[in-house]
């Protein structure tokens, strides 16, 4: 392991920017809000001092809304594709839950083989993860095996030791080459640092809200009764937020906007909408909100996920808990499931 401080991290970031790399990192928006977005200056990002950004960094690759084509019949007729921009990217400060989310989306698209803008944006991304020292009330990555520090998928991972001081863990060949390149901005970590890291990790783990029902609820998922889904279904007001903010949700829809001329747009969809599963003739295999919630919870938690992806597809980021405008979130579901 290596050790680095924030000034040197900014210097490295500056070097990336000067090389023309697109650097994405958390940026303060004022009044306590943060967003993961492209930065133009190495002073613009902030890694610590907040839990996570509201939008998961998946939005950088899988856009909430993007034009994939243009059409028009006015003159000669127009029909053209719009290609996603290809950049050499650095993702700086991604949290372990969100990194695990990206890996799950990668696996999903690999499996279905779709030619998505996502895939092209994902190529050539250097990932610097940030192990979380301080969870929020809604975080439960410890229970879903996806945090508070990452075990895979990063090139570098920063571990918080003290304000502005991090241990730097190398996670790949690419990461090693990059660390060699900037060796003069880092130092080797010593015994004391490792000891401190252990202390800090213990402290972090102690800060998580105790959720013994998570594993139990997941284990019970096939047994959950209709009354639980009915209860939750009555309390979902269909905002779509639980899907939109989920770092592992992949569903999208495509629509042509405009009549004689316009754009073909690809955008986030939500399985909580009635129209999402409606078929021709107004038939709906998931006719009520309870069945739509069941679909979502199973899509995240059911056993087949482990068979297909090697793990469940909830990374415990907690976003769907605080964004829920009703009272139908995954935490409540797991509690109820564990009591089944």
């Amino acid at each position: 392991m290596l050790k680095i401080d924030i000034q040197n991290l900014r210097k490295i970031t500056n070097a990336f920017l000067e090389e023309g790399k697109a650097v994405y990192a958390p940026r303060p928006l004022g009044m306590g809000d943060f967003a993961f977005d492209r930065i133009e200056n190495h002073e613009d990002f902030q890694i610590e001092g907040f839990v996570n950004t509201l939008l998961p960094p998946k939005e950088i690759f899988f856009r909430q809304m993007e034009t994939i084509g243009r059409f028009g019949w006015k003159k000669k007729g127009l029909c053209e594709d719009v290609e996603p921009e290809i950049e050499d990217k650095v993702l700086l400060g991604i949290r372990p839950c969100d990194l695990e989310g990206l890996l799950l989306i990668d696996a999903f698209y690999d499996r279905v083989g779709a030619d998505m803008p996502y895939k092209r944006r994902r190529e050539k991304t250097f990932i610097i993860a940030y192990a979380c020292p301080e969870p929020a009330d809604t975080c439960f990555c410890v229970e879903t095996d996806s945090g508070p520090w990452a075990k895979r998928g990063f090139d570098w991972q920063l571990h918080w030791l003290d304000e502005g001081i991090y241990l730097l863990e190398v996670g790949s060949e690419k990461g090693k080459d990059m660390a060699d390149r900037f060796a003069d901005l880092m130092e080797k970590a010593g015994e004391d640092d490792f000891k401190l890291l252990e202390v800090k990790r213990k402290e972090t783990l102690g800060k998580f809200k105790n959720r013994p029902y998570v594993k139990k609820g997941i284990g019970n998922i096939t047994k959950v009764g209709g009354e639980v889904y009915r209860y939750l279904g009555e309390r979902c007001f269909r905002c779509g937020g639980c899907n939109y903010l989920c770092p592992t949700c992949t569903c999208y829809n495509v629509a042509d906007i405009g009549a004689r001329e316009g754009e073909r747009v690809l955008f986030w969809d939500s399985c909580q909408f009635e129209g999402y599963s409606r078929l021709a003739g107004n038939l709906n295999p998931r006719p009520d909100q309870g069945s739509r919630l069941k679909f979502r919870f199973e899509c995240k938690l059911a056993e087949w996920n482990v068979e297909t992806y090697g793990r469940i597809r909830c990374t415990g980021c907690g976003r769907c808990i605080y964004t829920c405008i009703g009272d139908a979130d995954i935490d409540l579901f797991l509690k109820k499931a564990s009591e089944t």
Binding site: Q64, M65, G240, G241, I325
Partner: peptide
Amino acid sequence: VDAVFPSLNHPVNRGSLCAKGWSVPF
């Protein structure tokens, strides 16, 4: 504008939007 998202700290919505709010860019 190609995305919209709620403020986490706004005293009224604290990280939430309804379906209409989520589709403002359209």
